[in-house]
Design a protein around this nucleic acid. Sequence first.
RNA 1: GGGGAGGUUCCCGAGCGGUCAAAGGGAACAGACUGUAAAUCUGUCGGCGACGCCUUCGGAGGUUCGAAUCCUCCCCUCCCCA
Length: 427
Amino acid sequence: MDKHVVDELSARGFVQQITEPEPLRELLGKESVTFYVGIDPTADSLHAGHLLPVMGMAIMQKYGHRPIVIVGGGTAMIGDPSGKTEMRKMLTREQIVENSKKIKQQLGRYLDFSEGKAIMVDNYEWLGSLNYIDFLRDIGRHFSVNKMLTYETYKRRMETGLSFLEFNYQLLQAYDFYVLYKKYNCRLQMGGDDQWANILAGSDLIRRMGGKDVYGHTFPLLTTATGAKMGKTEAGALWLDPEKTSPYDYYQYWVNVDDRDLVRFMRLYTFLPVEEIEKLENLKDAEYNLAKTILAFEATKLSHGEEEAKKAMMAAMAAFGSREIPADMVPSSTIPRGEQSGNESGVPGASMDDAFINSAPLLIDVLADNGLVKSKGEGRRLVQQGGVYVNDERIQDIEFKLERKDVKDGKIELRLGKKRYFNLTFS
RNA sequence: GGGGAGGUUCCCGAGCGGUCAAAGGGAACAGACUGUAAAUCUGUCGGCGACGCCUUCGGAGGUUCGAAUCCUCCCCUCCCCA
């Protein structure tokens, strides 16, 4: 790696604010730095919104720095008011431990945890046994309520109500940084830009407690070109857990990104060289789709592995038509090039038996039973509006029944709207 | 603790005794147009064996032929005062 990490990060769009850019740059350039990012274990899986900090950490690690991931086991029990207009629900200890385990597994795809190259710690370890009096005396005295109240996050919450509990969040996060500084010589905290105030609080605290040279770095808060939060889909969040979001759906999310987001996302969510990505600036028409295929493939590869990524890609081709990725388009990508024929094995579906088809089930019932529509009423509407296809043929009769003759090559292909495919397979 | 304002369908937000499954907007979904993009236009948007029936308007009771709308108690949120 001849490039400087900071340049790499900024070229890829990972830099929003840095507390002291020059000294930090110098530090990162001359030695391996231990840094940390906090993740709240509020669910048992990461989702696309977490991806940006995770990618940021991964880049740092590639450049020889050591990430500490704090799962905020202690702080999650309080809830961070930053950027929220409502109090967050609290979790029990057991849920948090369970969630953390799964999150670590997922992080393992992006970070190398072997031989202590990355560490994951739970701040409950020190927050859980905090002594209130000691904490107030040693830590609390360094915080000015007047100052805290001027922060935008608290100001906003002042309008709707802010509990004392939440008001303490910042102190605890600052304390985390302090503990990591003492324990692991952690010199840098990274996080989303909504964490800026909390990060500053941490580095201020360390300085006041006699520490030196600690820094903060924030990542931009991403929204898509249409203003939506990153990774939000009709079905909710875009999860990394294949049980919650199938690799196929995950892949589809990336293929369906807005044109305007393509290049930006490729820089942020893949490790492909920036120089190659830059060449994609002037795509036109259908070329966008080829580039999006690469984005989707690479993003899926990262979170689900290359095999799953290929499967998702083949499934998409089976449904939407094959594509040939030109050899000179982002050559570093390991996406299969040349003629590719689709293979449906990655398309969502269910296997059915003979009894099922012999009973000549109503199409609407099948849709509802497989969770493709929320209710039969919705199914009916969809059919009436011409949004349901069986083997690529539009069905507009709400009484339509699936029969043996609809089974082609051992399957019936259902399609809702333009993009949602579901195969019923028969053995 | 005292006073005030509120809690409506995914979200915002009307409704204030029947004509209310509940205006309007947003989100979402489908259709047309396209490039599995965006924008635009059109339609849909509680459930069901569907010109009818059932379940919704913070919760529980009550008044009434009839309640989201009135009364009682309770829960929760916000604002002002302490």
